[in-house]
């Protein structure tokens, strides 16, 4: 990817920083999200909690629904395609969505290969559970990384695990001598030039957001204090008792994430958050985070 295209792709992610990106399934929900202060919406047919409940194959959304959401709001509209399903991605690009999420929330289309994202002008966001995975996605052309977490659970534990893992691995890389990096890159199964770059800078060359289990303002604060630059909220808003209030509160929490007094005010009287799932209630086959590699 040329430097110019890379900076245009990551540039939009820079503009989304300090914000909240919300999953929406209808134009009406998109308007609620925009009115609550979302920096972008993710258009999808069913939110992860319902995909989990309903079962079956989850695919990219109906173009009609995506277009209606694009018309309803002025903020960027993102949409998901299945892992490895480059035809779905081509359709999303034709629809001019602002970001494509090659997402483990949908049923994977290719168990061996992810999409070669350099071929697209539309930027991609991809999930990662650790640094190696993040660097492989960047090698394929992703312009933004997010933690996978465990989507549709309202349980923050996996997002925390993934964010801490990525942070720790970056810190470890930066302590190594340069003559040790090739062996590490081999071990990680990650492109050498990206391993080298992270070792030198101590951070990812693209923004790092968080997704997968965020359900309260405190969850948003936790992830941002751990280093997330923006928050994706999927089921956490429209599965809560009062979506509009919860959406607004999480937006405020993304700004005041390091101000506990403010967070206490923000968190007051929001009604109940989504019920959520403990990880022990999910069978290994149901874990979305293990989709992709």
């Amino acid at each position: 990817m040329t430097k110019e295209l890379f900076e245009v792709k990551t540039g939009l992610a820079e503009m989304l920083k300090g914000g909240v990106i919300m999953d929406v399934t209808t134009p009406k929900e998109a308007v609620i999200a925009e009115k609550a202060g979302a920096v972008a919406v993710m258009a999808l047919e069913r939110i992860p909690a319902d995909i989990r409940k309903d079962g079956g194959i989850a695919r990219a959304s109906d173009p009609k629904m995506i277009k209606e959401i694009q018309q309803a709001v002025s903020i960027p509209v993102m949409a998901k395609c299945r892992i490895g399903h480059f035809a779905e991605a081509q359709i999303l690009e034709a629809l001019e969505v602002d970001y494509i999420d090659e997402s483990e929330v949908l049923t994977p289309a290719d168990e061996a290969n992810h999409i070669w994202k350099h071929d697209f002008k539309t930027p991609f966001v991809c999930g990662a559970t650790n640094l190696s995975e993040a660097l492989r996605r960047l090698g394929e052309g992703a312009a933004l990384i997010r933690t996978k977490g465990e989507p549709g659970t309202g349980n923050i534990v996996e997002a925390v695990r993934h964010m801490r893992t990525i942070n720790t691995e970056m810190a470890q890389l930066s302590t190594l001598r340069r003559d040790e990096l090739m062996a590490v890159a081999k071990e990680m199964g990650a492109p050498f030039h990206l391993v080298d770059q992270v070792a030198e800078t101590g951070k990812l060359p693209v923004p790092n957001f968080s997704a997968g289990g965020i359900a309260t303002p405190a969850d948003a604060s936790l992830m941002m204090q751990l280093g997330a630059e923006t928050i994706f909220v999927g089921s956490g808003i429209f599965k809560s008792e009062n979506p509009s209030a919860m959406a607004k509160a999480i937006v405020q929490a993304a700004t005041f994430y390091d101000n506990p007094k403010k967070l206490a005010e923000i968190s007051e009287g929001l009604g109940s958050a989504m019920k959520g799932l403990d990880m022990s209630e999910i069978t290994p086959e149901e874990r979305m985070q293990d989709r992709g590699w």
Binding site: K17, G19, E34, K35, G37, V39, I75, K248, Q252, T255
Partner: peptide, 15 residues
Amino acid sequence: PGGESTTMTLLLENE
């Protein structure tokens, strides 16, 4: 800065 003008408006007003 750059960002989303709708989000900035809401945050400025709400705060």
